[in-house]
Design a protein around this nucleic acid. Structure first.
Length: 95
DNA sequence: AATCGGGCGTACA
DNA sequence: CTGTACGCCCGAT
């Protein structure tokens, strides 16, 4: 495990765990993740957790999109641009 | 399509 | 500990 992961908040750990369960080539919405970790109303908090996750591919935050089908954003390098590229490589149609 | 308010966890003063 | 500001949001006007 990465050392950075040991410092995350309890909420963040749940989010990361959920993100890791996303199969390659598929995407999940922030709301879905929120529900999966037991916080159905904390979609925004989930997004916040992801944004504070400048971590390695251990946590595929790029596989998380908005509920309306949009990509949302990306705090990682390359911004939403990189996010889109990754999804497209995994077989996700982002147009 | 654009705008508004609700709702949630974290960081900081 | 209380209050304020913020974010990769969401659903309803």
């Amino acid at each position: 495990m990465s050392p950075a992961m040991e410092q995350g908040t309890p909420f963040q750990r749940k989010v990361w765990a959920a993100l890791k369960t996303i199969p390659r080539g598929e995407v999940r919405t922030y709301t879905q993740i929120a529900v999966q970790i037991g916080h159905p109303t904390s979609a925004r908090a989930v997004a916040n957790a992801c944004g504070k996750n400048p971590y390695a591919p251990d946590v595929p935050c790029h596989r998380v999109i908005r509920a309306d089908g949009g990509l949302g954003g990306y705090s990682g390098e390359g911004g939403v641009e990189q996010k889109r590229a990754l999804l497209r490589e995994e077989g996700v149609d982002v147009d």
